[in-house]
Amino acid sequence: MTPALDLAGIFVFALSGALQGVRKRLDVVGMAVLAFFTAVGGGITRDLFIGVQPAAFRDTGYLLVPIAATAIAFFWHPQVERAMPGVLVFDAAGLGLFCAVGTAKALAYGLSPLHAVLLGVCTAVGGGVIRDVLSGEMPTLLYDRQLYAVPAMLGSTAMAVLYALDIRGFAATLSSAVLAFALRILAMRYGWRAPLARGVGGPV
């Protein structure tokens, strides 16, 4: 992933974290904490599992972008909330990019395809789990409203398959990311969600 795309994905995820802080009536510090961990929490978790220094601790952009997203949400959250349908499209793009890149990085460090897929999903959705836990919400990962983890898993699996076929680099990343993005957009459009256990109603 190019640095520009990486930071764009981080910005969108950070914005969702900051907006969660607004909804929870947190102060600006709480908003910034949610923005930071939503944006880079999944990548930090992945890198710690792999055993490398997290990229978020090497590049100041990973800190400055969440701060910028926090400032935008702090001053203009009503306008950002109204623009959320458009923001969710970028969020879906970030989901696709992060699952593909996370899987590729895990594979490059010698992990098995299965473990690489798990870390790819972790990269894409881990920040959202941290956001929900810190803000006192049930993580959406646990009930996957409108299919969030499933597209990430599909994109990560596609990346692992392409890697095994020796198809790597930009083409593999783009193909896997588009696959996850498309499924996420379709899920939002048609209200798809993962099935519940037989006879069980929706989340309480």
Score class of each variant (00 low, 15 high):
residue 73 A to Y: 04
residue 114 L to V: 15
residue 3 P to E: 05
residue 96 G to C: 13
residue 60 T to V: 11
residue 194 A to N: 04
residue 172 A to R: 06
residue 82 R to D: 04
residue 150 V to T: 15
residue 170 F to I: 15
residue 99 C to A: 12
residue 123 T to H: 07
residue 156 S to C: 07
residue 174 L to K: 09
residue 22 V to W: 00
residue 22 V to L: 04
residue 180 A to K: 05
residue 157 T to W: 00
residue 16 S to I: 05
residue 157 T to V: 11
residue 119 L to W: 05
residue 43 G to H: 06
residue 164 A to L: 13
residue 135 S to W: 07
residue 65 V to Y: 00
residue 176 S to R: 09
residue 85 P to M: 09
residue 175 S to L: 15
residue 161 V to A: 08
residue 159 M to F: 05
residue 53 Q to R: 10
residue 35 A to V: 09
residue 164 A to T: 14
residue 110 G to D: 12
residue 85 P to W: 02
residue 165 L to D: 06
residue 111 L to S: 06
residue 38 T to K: 00
residue 100 A to C: 14
residue 47 D to M: 11
residue 50 I to H: 03
residue 54 P to S: 13
residue 168 R to G: 11
residue 109 Y to F: 15
residue 54 P to A: 12
residue 137 E to H: 14
residue 52 V to A: 08
residue 201 G to T: 13
residue 86 G to S: 04
residue 83 A to E: 03
residue 70 T to V: 07
residue 61 G to Q: 03
residue 42 G to N: 06
residue 78 P to C: 06
residue 120 G to M: 10
residue 113 P to F: 10
residue 181 F to Y: 13
residue 47 D to H: 10
residue 148 Y to S: 08
residue 84 M to R: 14
residue 33 V to K: 08
residue 76 W to P: 00
residue 134 L to I: 14
residue 68 A to F: 08
residue 22 V to P: 03
residue 179 L to W: 01
residue 66 P to A: 00
residue 107 L to D: 02
residue 91 D to P: 03
residue 67 I to L: 15
residue 157 T to F: 01
residue 4 A to H: 02
residue 170 F to W: 13
residue 65 V to H: 00
residue 150 V to G: 00
residue 24 K to N: 08
residue 99 C to L: 13
residue 176 S to M: 02
residue 3 P to C: 06
residue 184 R to G: 01
residue 88 L to Y: 12
residue 104 A to V: 07
residue 167 I to E: 11
residue 27 D to K: 13
residue 176 S to V: 08
residue 49 F to G: 08
residue 71 A to Y: 02
residue 200 V to Y: 03
residue 94 G to R: 01
residue 6 D to G: 08
residue 163 Y to V: 06
residue 197 A to P: 10
residue 74 F to H: 14
residue 163 Y to C: 04
residue 154 L to N: 02
residue 191 G to W: 05
residue 147 L to Q: 09
residue 131 R to H: 07
residue 171 A to D: 13
residue 167 I to V: 15
residue 97 L to K: 05
residue 169 G to Y: 10
residue 30 G to H: 10
residue 125 V to G: 02
residue 172 A to E: 04
residue 102 G to D: 12
residue 137 E to F: 05
residue 21 G to P: 03
residue 94 G to F: 03
residue 64 L to W: 04
residue 89 V to G: 01
residue 186 L to N: 08
residue 121 V to N: 02
residue 109 Y to T: 10
residue 176 S to F: 05
residue 43 G to M: 05
residue 75 F to Q: 05
residue 74 F to R: 07
residue 159 M to A: 11
residue 157 T to Q: 00
residue 198 R to P: 01
residue 173 T to C: 12
residue 35 A to E: 06
residue 91 D to W: 01
residue 140 T to W: 00
residue 130 I to M: 14
residue 175 S to N: 06
residue 143 Y to E: 08
residue 121 V to F: 04
residue 90 F to K: 01
residue 16 S to M: 07
residue 31 M to E: 09
residue 82 R to M: 07
residue 163 Y to A: 14
residue 125 V to F: 06
residue 90 F to H: 01
residue 50 I to T: 08
residue 76 W to V: 09
residue 200 V to C: 04
residue 38 T to S: 14
residue 107 L to S: 06
residue 67 I to N: 00
residue 114 L to H: 10
residue 47 D to E: 13
residue 96 G to E: 03
residue 152 A to T: 06
residue 154 L to S: 09
residue 163 Y to Q: 07
residue 196 L to I: 07
residue 66 P to W: 00
residue 168 R to L: 04
residue 174 L to H: 14
residue 128 G to L: 04
residue 152 A to R: 04
residue 126 G to W: 03
residue 47 D to Q: 08
residue 119 L to Q: 07
residue 25 R to Q: 15
